[in-house]
């Protein structure tokens, strides 16, 4: 496990970029952490390292956004997905192995993720701009 401390949105993106450089093109990255903790900011930093520099937003309603970077990037939001049959009917399994997969609200689908998933836990720090980022 590696731990990072971020003091700003900017820094969160930089840390995400650092982590991105260690990932394979078909990696599944699961983000853990509640509302406003910086999951989308982290995602923005992560995918910009893969050549996606605009249009990143939370796909809460669409469930998945696709971005074309240096590799295809699939950005999931599992907020409304609650079990395995749901997950299947998002087409999630059809995306694995075809590009970088990033999952917000992965808490809802923890039992169904691939064994080699990289977990990123985001939590509030001491003050309102501080975040603790753990890679597991």
């Amino acid at each position: 496990m590696t731990e990072y401390i971020s003091h700003s949105l900017q820094e969160t993106e930089t840390i995400a970029g650092e982590i991105a450089s260690t990932l394979s093109n078909n990696q599944v990255v699961a983000l853990l952490g509640g509302l406003g903790v910086g999951k989308t900011t982290f995602t923005r930093g992560l995918v910009s390292a893969f050549g996606v520099d605009s249009g990143v937003h939370s796909p809460t309603f669409a469930i998945v956004n696709e971005y074309q970077g240096d590799v295809p990037v699939y950005h999931f939001d599992m907020y409304r997905v609650t079990d395995e049959d749901d997950l299947y009917s998002t087409g999630f399994y059809d995306y694995l192995g075809r590009g970088l997969v990033i999952i917000e609200w992965s808490e809802n689908v923890l039992d169904y993720l691939p064994a080699d998933t990289v977990f990123i836990e985001l939590a509030y720090g001491e003050d309102e701009n501080t975040r603790i980022i753990k890679r597991k």
């Binding site: 609650t82 079990d83 049959d85 749901d86 299947y88 009917s89």
Partner: peptide, 10 residues
């Protein structure tokens, strides 16, 4: 025929 039920069906 998915062999799974969609959430709405369940």
């Amino acid at each position: 025929s998915y062999l799974r039920l969609s959430q709405a069906e369940r």
